[in-house]
Amino acid sequence: MKTKIGLLYGGKSAEHKVSMQTAMAVIKALDLEKFDIYPIYITEEGQWVKGPQLTGPVENVKALEFTKEDPQAGAPLAPTLFQAEGEKQKPLDVIFPLLHGPNGEDGTVQGLLEILNLPYVGNGVLASAAGMDKVIMKNIFAQAGLNQVNYVWFIRSEWEKAKKQAYEKVEKELGYPCFVKPANLGSSVGINKATNRSELEAAFQEAFQFDRKIIIEEGVTAREIEIGVLGNDEPECSVAGEIVPKKEFYDYKAKYEDGDTALIIPADLTEEEYAKLKEMAIKAFKALDCSGLVRADFFLTKDGELYINEVNTMPGFTPFSMFPLLWKHSGVEYPELIERLVKLAKERHAEKQNIKHTL
């Protein structure tokens, strides 16, 4: 019997376009002999619209953009959004959230799916929320004893009251160069490198356009190494990959628009470095109570110092994305990767059904 899968994509987020590209790639990868595909599109205004069942790959992103005038449009809690056509009382077998950034990757949608008691691919509410907020994530990593670069953070209101003191704190505790980032965005949106006070001020201004909280990290001269983690209670790691940006750092444009970067898979690492990488990735996965998948990102210095940078709880599945490429080089082809994620989602959901909710 086919698995009825609902693809949830789009979203009210600066990463809407990234999500659309991810949805295109996943649809192309799904085996129609095994899956019935139901698209659920969230517009940039936050409107939820369910499209008709897909019978094959779509030509372009426009084919996945349904409008609020669609008769199947509804509020997020409208039961029909999560039901298969012709089976009004039967929910979809599993939901695959292909959402990036706030209102999708941050635990909000995961909470909705928990309330509806639906199986869904990927991380739960806690891991998604903690993984989205770079400050909370780094605080948890620090508690777990994971090696990180130095960082400081600010909320907009405190910065507006004491801008000079904020800049001085960065200079005193981190120095230059440093990286200024919105705390709750991924895909390198709103990130800038600062090498002096003027650039730092501009970077603060831009980052605060995307979030009320920002994080500033110490700049280190290091290789950028990434690894994929897959599983629930017993996660496993892929081979490692290295990102070699042609620009100063791996920004949004390099990731999603021009592919202006080199991906080296597998990365040139010693056995000891790879073993340490896997150990730290799994430790981070468990510290956040992750499930399904994450991509863990690291810095490796010339003297062999390894720092965890962050984990991405919903890595992209675009043609330029690292996560599926890492698993492909580990012997797991794209369609199989999708199927394993769906299986993990069902297993985690089945386990939750055994939890008592009454005395």
Score class of each variant (00 low, 15 high):
L77V: 09
T55C: 03
L92F: 12
L81S: 04
V94P: 03
Q143R: 12
V49I: 15
N123W: 06
K88E: 15
G111F: 10
A63Y: 02
K62R: 08
P71T: 08
V152G: 02
P76N: 00
L116F: 14
A144L: 09
L81D: 02
G145P: 12
T67Q: 09
A127G: 10
P119A: 15
Q89G: 13
I136L: 11
L118V: 10
N123Y: 05
W48G: 02
P97E: 07
E87P: 00
T108K: 10
V109K: 02
L64D: 09
W48L: 03
V152S: 03
Q110L: 11
P102V: 14
Q143T: 12
I140F: 13
Y120H: 09
L116W: 06
V152D: 04
P71E: 13
F141Y: 15
Q148R: 02
V58A: 07
L92N: 04
M137W: 08
G51K: 04
V58T: 15
M132Q: 11
P52G: 04
Q83V: 03
G56S: 14
N123K: 05
K138R: 14
T67V: 06
A78Y: 06
D133C: 02
E59W: 04
P91R: 13
A63P: 00
E85S: 11
F96Q: 00
L146M: 11
G51N: 06
Q72R: 13
D106G: 07
K68I: 14
L77I: 10
M137F: 08
K134D: 09
F82L: 14
M137T: 14
L92H: 04
L146A: 09
G107L: 02
F141D: 03
A78M: 09
L146H: 10
P102I: 14
Q110M: 12
K88V: 02
K90S: 10
L99I: 13
N150Y: 00
K138Q: 10
T55A: 06
G111M: 11
A142M: 05
F141I: 02
T55N: 14
P97L: 08
N117R: 14
T108V: 12
Q47E: 14
L92M: 12
D106N: 06
F96T: 02
F66V: 07
L99K: 10
D133R: 00
K138D: 04
V149G: 04
K62Q: 13
L99R: 08
V152H: 03
T55L: 12
A75R: 12
